[in-house]
């Protein structure tokens, strides 16, 4: 049954393995012990930030494949994306991996939009192994969206820090003892007129709310059904607003509600409102959340990755910030 962006995957495709890579600063994350690889150099010992970015996505893919003893030539599809112009890091990593590839752009919600595509091809019985994920590299993204890295601008409390990380999931037909993808909801673009690129969390919160509401209603579920409902990168500010919006919709906001962006750096005020970037949700979802599903700590989770679909051009032309959120439901059976 498919209707209005609501997805169900009756064959229950599995996330057979994951690979997460991160930059040196991300060692400060309380989840860093769960990342598969942490580089000592922010450019991964390559010449440019963008090359390092591609390397990170490539390494995460290789690590994820190695965990099921597979090689890139065995994979059927590769869905990935990032935030650099025309997604060149993902394109270059796909060039190295030589897996049939479609670049995905949902800004920081790409982790889940890729996963939904992977679940779709797998559920349609078209794939044995599909890679899905996203990444971001701080320096490459900051220069793209904001100022040069060394430029001194006073960042407000509400601003977020783009993470250097990549997360890739290997999606296969149903396998025992692995988390499975049961349902999903494709987001709608929501724009409530926010214009401040240094307060993205606030702009994205209504999109997360819209997708959560549509998912619960559409799949006849309740927030109580889940062990964890985790948004992507709303940060402290956006997450506070999201919880307020949810409460107004009479959703019971408990400890089960978490945000990957707020949690990523453990609330360190040096990172202001928290983490953001396509690598933020993918790194947390595919390490911490995936790990806790494998150990059985979580049986059913709802992941809602959020993305702001602005560009420096649209911002300078005075446009508002359009936002999106995609949701996926994982179960450990």
């Amino acid at each position: 049954m498919v209707s209005k962006g609501l997805l169900t995957f009756p064959s229950n495709p599995s996330i057979a393995a994951t690979g997460v890579t991160a930059g040196p600063l991300e060692k400060k994350s309380p989840f860093s012990s769960q990342f598969d690889k942490i580089y000592t150099d922010e450019r991964m010992h390559l010449k440019t930030n963008e090359q390092g970015h591609a390397k990170m996505i490539e390494d995460a893919s290789m690590i994820a494949l190695s965990k099921i003893d597979a090689v890139p030539s065995k994979a059927d599809f590769f869905f990935a994306g990032d935030l650099v112009n025309q997604m060149t890091p993902s394109n270059f990593s796909a060039s190295t991996l030589q897996i049939p590839y479609i670049g995905m752009f949902s800004a920081c919600a790409t982790s889940i939009s890729s996963l939904l595509m992977a679940a779709l091809v797998t559920d349609a019985n078209l794939s044995e192994i599909t890679l899905a994920g996203a990444g971001s590299q701080h320096n490459a993204i900051e220069r793209q969206f904001r100022y040069p890295v060394e430029y001194g601008s006073q960042k407000p409390e509400s601003s977020q820090w783009t993470v250097t990380a990549a997360g890739i999931a290997v999606v296969t037909p149903n396998r025992k003892k692995t988390p499975v993808i049961t349902k999903g909801t494709m987001g709608r673009v929501i724009d409530l007129g926010m214009t401040d690129p240094l307060n993205m969390g606030a702009a994205m919160a209504p999109a997360a709310m819209d997708t959560l509401e549509r998912h619960l209603k559409g799949h006849q579920a309740s927030e109580a059904d889940y062990d964890l409902i985790m948004t992507g990168d709303l940060g402290k500010t956006g997450f506070t607003i999201f919880k307020e919006l949810a409460t107004r919709k009479e959703i019971v906001v408990s400890e089960k509600f978490q945000d990957a962006g707020e949690a990523f750096y453990g609330g360190d005020p040096k990172f202001f409102s928290g983490a953001s970037g396509a690598g933020c949700s993918s790194a947390i979802y595919f390490s911490e959340v995936y790990g806790k599903m494998m150990t059985g700590d979580y049986q059913k989770v709802l992941l809602i990755a959020t993305g702001s679909l602005l560009s420096p051009l649209s911002y300078q032309q005075g446009e508002t910030i359009p936002c999106i959120a995609h949701a996926v439901e994982l179960m450990m059976k």
């Binding site: 407000p156 409390e157 509400s158 409530l192 007129g193 926010m194 307060n199 606030a202 209504p206 500010t237 506070t240 607003i241 307020e244 919006l245």
Partner: peptide, 13 residues
């Protein structure tokens, strides 16, 4: 938008 702007103003630092 207006209603949301009010919430945003209240809750943003």
């Amino acid at each position: 938008e207006k209603k949301f702007a009010k919430i945003e103003q209240q809750l943003s630092p």
